Lab assay of single mutants.
Amino acid sequence: TTTLTYTDEEEARKAAEELKRRGITFTYTKRGGTWEIRIK
């Protein structure tokens, strides 16, 4: 499992869109002031 952490929502959203485009499965979690993208 790879976890990407972002403090900028815009960056996190761009990363999530890129992963979706590649067909990669991930979970997206907001934790306080950070956003976590966990790639399975």
Results as ranks from 00 to 15, higher is better:
residue 36 E to G: 01
residue 32 G to Q: 09
residue 24 I to R: 03
residue 19 L to K: 00
residue 33 G to D: 15
residue 26 F to R: 00
residue 6 Y to T: 02
residue 3 T to P: 04
residue 36 E to D: 02
residue 15 A to P: 00
residue 3 T to M: 10
residue 35 W to Q: 01
residue 31 R to P: 02
residue 37 I to Y: 01
residue 19 L to A: 01
residue 27 T to V: 09
residue 31 R to M: 11
residue 8 D to S: 14
residue 16 A to W: 04
residue 34 T to S: 10
residue 7 T to I: 08
residue 14 K to A: 13
residue 1 T to G: 13
residue 3 T to L: 14
residue 39 I to S: 02
residue 28 Y to N: 02
residue 20 K to M: 13
residue 30 K to N: 11
residue 15 A to W: 05
residue 21 R to F: 06
residue 26 F to A: 02
residue 11 E to N: 06
residue 35 W to V: 08
residue 38 R to P: 00
residue 12 A to F: 15
residue 12 A to S: 05
residue 16 A to I: 15
residue 39 I to F: 12
residue 28 Y to Q: 05
residue 9 E to F: 07
residue 29 T to Y: 10
residue 10 E to A: 13
residue 17 E to V: 09
residue 40 K to F: 15
residue 3 T to R: 07
residue 16 A to K: 04
residue 3 T to E: 03
residue 22 R to P: 01
residue 20 K to A: 13
residue 19 L to V: 01
residue 34 T to K: 13
residue 23 G to P: 01
residue 22 R to A: 10
residue 21 R to I: 08
residue 39 I to D: 00
residue 2 T to N: 08
residue 33 G to Y: 09
residue 24 I to M: 05
residue 1 T to Q: 12
residue 31 R to L: 12
residue 4 L to K: 04
residue 25 T to E: 15
residue 25 T to C: 10
residue 6 Y to A: 01
residue 28 Y to A: 04
residue 29 T to D: 05
residue 38 R to V: 15
residue 29 T to N: 08
residue 16 A to R: 05
residue 16 A to P: 00
residue 20 K to S: 12
residue 21 R to W: 04
residue 36 E to N: 03
residue 10 E to I: 12
residue 3 T to D: 03
residue 39 I to Q: 02
residue 22 R to W: 06
residue 8 D to I: 10
residue 11 E to H: 07
residue 6 Y to P: 00
residue 24 I to L: 08
residue 23 G to C: 04
residue 20 K to E: 11
residue 10 E to R: 14
residue 39 I to A: 02
residue 7 T to D: 09
residue 33 G to L: 13
residue 8 D to M: 06
residue 7 T to S: 09
residue 8 D to A: 06
residue 13 R to K: 14
residue 33 G to Q: 13
residue 28 Y to H: 03
residue 27 T to S: 09
residue 11 E to Y: 04
residue 25 T to Q: 14
residue 28 Y to S: 04
residue 31 R to W: 06
residue 39 I to C: 03
residue 5 T to R: 12
residue 15 A to F: 11
residue 25 T to K: 14
residue 17 E to K: 10
residue 27 T to Q: 06
residue 27 T to H: 05
residue 1 T to H: 12
residue 39 I to N: 01
residue 18 E to C: 09
residue 6 Y to R: 01
residue 20 K to Q: 11
residue 2 T to G: 07
residue 19 L to F: 10
residue 29 T to Q: 10
residue 24 I to F: 10
residue 5 T to F: 14
residue 12 A to Y: 11
residue 20 K to G: 06
residue 29 T to S: 09
residue 25 T to F: 12
residue 8 D to V: 11
residue 27 T to R: 04
residue 21 R to D: 06
residue 19 L to S: 01
residue 3 T to I: 15
residue 40 K to Y: 15
residue 34 T to C: 07
residue 36 E to Q: 07
residue 17 E to M: 12
residue 23 G to W: 02
residue 37 I to F: 03
residue 33 G to W: 07
residue 24 I to W: 05
residue 7 T to Q: 08
residue 18 E to W: 14
residue 18 E to A: 10
residue 20 K to P: 00
residue 8 D to P: 01
residue 5 T to Y: 15
residue 1 T to W: 15
residue 32 G to D: 14
residue 27 T to E: 11
residue 26 F to G: 01
residue 17 E to L: 11
residue 11 E to G: 05
residue 19 L to E: 00
residue 34 T to M: 14
residue 26 F to Y: 07
residue 40 K to A: 14
residue 37 I to L: 04
